[in-house]
Simulated assay, not measured.
Amino acid sequence: MSFTLHQLDVFAEVAKQKSMTKAAEKLFMSQPAVSIQVKKLQEHFGVNLFEMISKELYLTEAGKELYEAQKNIKSEVESLEMALSEIKGMLRGSLNVAAVSTAKYFMPYILGDFRSKFEKIKMSLKVTDRNEVKDLLRKNMCDLAVFSELPKDLDLEAVEFLDNPLLMASAADHPLAKKKNVTFKDLEDHPFLIREPGSGTRIVMQRLLDEHKIDPEIVMELGTNEAVKQAIMAGIGISLISKYSLTLEESVGKIAVLDIDNLPYVNKWKLVYPKGKRLSPAAQSFIEFTTNESFKEILK
């Protein structure tokens, strides 16, 4: 093989930036040095990797093939480096986790404690909506993802690691806030707030409403837990929400947890990855860390 990993990295940066000059700035190289590395790759494969359109570089079909191959090669090399580091007794490398929005209330604490034990691992946490997390899994752009309700349209391996208690919450002065043994039938005459389509909490809430055969008025659809909490405190409606997101508001008396039969509803947070994916040593170690009972002390 007469080309190098460095040349592939330079080529990939040019592909991302669509510019030799911008890639050179990102890589702290001169523009001629970047051009030379790309030229050597093109000479090796005997094809043009880029074409110029309106003063911007675009990948040719051959370039697109090489770009995908470069990402796979880089991933394999990183896995090899981590595996060899683990053999030497010093786990290092990177761990990229994507998580649905509710997980932001506990994942930073878990990752922080994990990093205190494996300081050489570089970590990233992307907290976003359910659809984007699914997209990152499809594109193999994260090592692990965090869901409570698994997507049915993806073929995934899942490891349960934490309880996810879901509670029905209201404003502190809501008529049901002080009532004991509230039933689901009692809820039917009160306005509800609901998360956006696809949200794991929405899936569970719709399941509970169907099971108890009630059809309350949905007065507002909201895209984040923070928005739901603000709407609850504003007295707009009640909603099912994760216990992890209520710690502050409940402690200062801004939000009340309703005393409802069969709640909290407890499902499990899961670490997931595509079936067939070869996990890096860092990802494997993180799964082992989160399935050890002692790690839950972090969240108390």
Rank of each mutant, 00 (worst) to 15 (best):
G198I: 04
E188V: 04
F106L: 10
F50A: 03
L279F: 14
M168G: 01
Q230C: 08
K71Y: 06
I236V: 02
S285D: 03
R115G: 14
E249V: 08
K16L: 04
K300C: 10
E86N: 07
G223D: 10
E226H: 11
S199V: 02
A98P: 00
E250F: 15
K88E: 15
V127P: 06
Q70N: 10
K16R: 09
K300P: 03
N267T: 09
R195T: 04
L248T: 00
L222I: 03
F147M: 08
P151H: 13
A15L: 03
F3G: 02
E43H: 06
L279M: 05
V146M: 09
M205K: 03
S285T: 08
G112Q: 06
P281A: 14
H174N: 13
V127R: 04
A177M: 08
F184D: 10
L84K: 05
G112I: 04
K16F: 07
T183C: 14
E188D: 05
S245A: 12
F114I: 01
A171L: 02
E288S: 09
Y109I: 01
N181P: 11
E119L: 13
K126R: 01
R138E: 13
R130C: 03
L27T: 01
L84A: 13
P216H: 13
E226I: 11
Q42E: 15
M20Q: 12
L57M: 09
L187A: 04
Y109W: 06
R130E: 10
T247A: 09
V204I: 12
G46E: 03
L57R: 13
P165D: 10
M29D: 02
K39H: 13
D143H: 15
K18R: 11
D143Y: 15
E13C: 14
F295W: 02
A177Y: 12
K179S: 14
N267V: 08
E65P: 02
S245G: 01
P165N: 12
P274Q: 12
N131L: 11
L299H: 11
L156K: 01
E250R: 02
M233F: 00
N225S: 14
I238A: 09
F184C: 04
L167Q: 11
K117D: 07
V228S: 00
L156Y: 00
I73R: 04
K277P: 05
L263C: 09
E149S: 08
K179R: 15
V133H: 14
V266M: 06
I255L: 05
G198W: 01
P197V: 09
L144D: 10
E149W: 00
T201H: 07
K120C: 12
G46I: 06
H190Q: 09
P216N: 13
K270D: 08
A33V: 01
P108K: 08
I298F: 06
G63P: 02
V34G: 07
V159M: 05
V219N: 05
R195V: 02
G276I: 05
K268V: 05
L80H: 11
Y244E: 02
T102F: 06
E196D: 11
S285Q: 12
E56S: 12
I53L: 10
L167M: 04
S79K: 14
Q31S: 07
A227I: 01
M1T: 03
K152T: 03
P264Y: 15
P216V: 01
A33Y: 11
E288F: 10
I53G: 07
M52L: 15
A69L: 15
E119A: 14
L144F: 15
E81K: 12
I298A: 14
S30F: 02
D143W: 15
K18Y: 15
S170K: 04
